[in-house]
Amino acid sequence: MMTAEAQTHYPTTDGPKPKERFYTLLVIVDNEIGMMSRISGLLSARGYNIQTVTAAEVNHAKHLSRISIVTKATPDVIDQIVAQLEKLIPVHFVRNLTDEGNAVERELAVIKLRYNETYKEKIDAIAAGYNTRILEQFEDVIIMEISAATARVEEFISSVPKRAIIDLSRSGVVATTRDGKAIVKIED
């Protein structure tokens, strides 16, 4: 079932280039020193903008990392970005989940809020409407996490009174496909 949250959540934006939109790419790479620098260097050198990048090793035996990139581009430019990424020697392959059209995406935010008389009630009311979890609570501070599609995370953050926010940390997007197949094997 497709829920609102399970879709690709960066909205198509109205920019000078009408066909620009957000794309989610998965890059499977050898986890070697300087790998993130190769990727971010390539994107910045060619003037591509990066919305979010996350990376972690997902196959420890083979030292394979999975890098999720969200970037804003036109269809021509995204093809060029994919081709340039695939040119990097340690890159195994790149998947354009947005073009494939079956991405399941999530972003985690950890938010530290003033939980005093002024905001308490409001925060409780807003948090109840989202998939939030309380991580810590002490004195008049509460630390919550929300795990959702980026648009929902954005929505939650903008609903909370600005003055209540002490600190905010976001993970960037991680993603997989809505099917029974592996993007990369995690065994052996």
């Binding site: 020193i33 300087g34 620098s37 190769r38 260097g41 390539l42 050198a45 990097l88 020697i89």
Partner: peptide, 16 residues
């Protein structure tokens, strides 16, 4: 050296 030459090589290696 590998940092400096990353964008001016096809690939580079630091042998550890």
């Amino acid at each position: 050296t590998t940092g400096i030459t990353r964008s001016c090589t096809k690939h580079n290696f630091l042998v550890k």
